[in-house]
């Protein structure tokens, strides 16, 4: 991660920005000392991270007939894209567009509902808004697994079974607790003086929300966008239980179905895994700073 990836907290004493006495030599002493033991550990982890990825890429380029005889760690002798064609010919595009729809809808719902909620929780602080905040604080611990049976019943009664909405609505609801906590954490740091300045101007709560709170909560909001989009993108349980047919099938469930569909054709299965990772990887290449910074926000500041 490069030097400018994250804003440094202002209270950190920065030797380079400090008085002239902090010579480059002294700075090296505190922050730039090489650490061979840690370096070795990091190298070991690098191997652990890269070997499965390498084996996946290499196997996905191997012909299905050769896969069972060769060593997956050897580079393929004559690479082929056949496996990728197999996957793309099996409705991969449809899975991808369904997943994109789910992700966009979930982000939209989560933002619309969580931003006013966090705003109220931080600013209003009366009995009701505190109760609302507590609900989400405890709600963090409700595991999605624990409610699938009754949700299945609810979804069926609402006539939503086997539709994209059956995936979108519960996914959005379960992305809300963390989103609210992240936003509350961000909004707590907005200074009281700014609100008072707006108050002197006679601004309405709505104007304060759009002109002060939302612009200052950008960091938290981008965290929420990334977090809820990933929840939607990676969600597996809700699609598994609330959908059945090809029509509303999303990527994760599609991958799961490929396991039985492709059977022993492991190269094709791995090609589908590679393809499923490409969209997020592309986002990572283009907007690594935003993605990583946003996710860092999920764990607090």
């Amino acid at each position: 991660m490069s030097h400018d990836t994250l804003p440094r907290p202002t209270r950190t004493l920065q030797p380079d920005g400090g008085p002239a006495k902090a010579s480059p030599g002294r700075r090296r002493h505190w922050t730039r000392r090489a650490n061979p033991v840690a370096g070795l550990g990091a190298f070991v982890w690098l191997v652990i991270v890269l070997v499965p990825i390498y084996a996946m890429l290499s196997a996905s380029l191997t012909g299905a007939d050769k896969a069972l005889t060769g060593n997956p760690l050897k580079p393929p002798t004559d690479p082929t894209l056949d496996n990728y064609n197999t996957v793309l010919g099996n409705g991969f595009g449809h899975l991808l567009s369904n997943t994109a729809i789910v992700a966009v809808a979930v982000v939209g719902i989560v933002l619309t509902l969580s931003v006013p909620l966090a705003y109220v929780a931080v600013r209003t602080r009366d009995r009701w808004s505190n109760a609302a905040f507590r609900l989400f604080l405890v709600g963090v611990a409700i595991p999605a697994q624990a409610v699938v049976v009754p949700l299945y019943l609810l979804i069926a009664k609402l006539d939503l079974y086997d539709t994209l909405l059956a995936v979108i609505l519960p996914t959005a609801a379960f992305a809300m607790p963390v989103s609210v906590l992240v936003l509350v954490g961000t909004l707590r740091d907005v200074s009281e003086d700014l609100y008072e300045a707006m108050a002197l101007d006679g601004a309405s709560p709505l104007r304060v929300l759009f002109q002060l709170t939302i612009p200052l909560a950008k960091g938290g909001i981008s965290t929420v966008v990334i977090y809820s989009a990933l929840q939607a993108w990676n969600g597996f349980l809700f699609p598994l239980i609330f959908t059945q047919s090809d029509e509303p099938r999303v990527l994760t469930l599609g991958l799961f179905n490929y396991v039985s569909q492709f059977g022993v054709n492991i190269p094709a299965l791995l090609a589908s895994v590679v393809l499923s990772g490409i969209p997020i990887f592309a986002v990572y290449l283009v907007a690594r700073r935003a993605l990583v910074g946003g996710l860092m926000g999920v764990g607090g500041k």
Binding site: A121, A132, G139, A173, M198
Partner: peptide
């Protein structure tokens, strides 16, 4: 007068969740 919205603003989110 400003920046303290009514607690009802939280209602849609609470109901949905």
């Amino acid at each position: 007068r400003a920046g303290r919205p009514h607690a009802a603003w939280a209602l849609p989110g609470v109901l949905f969740f």
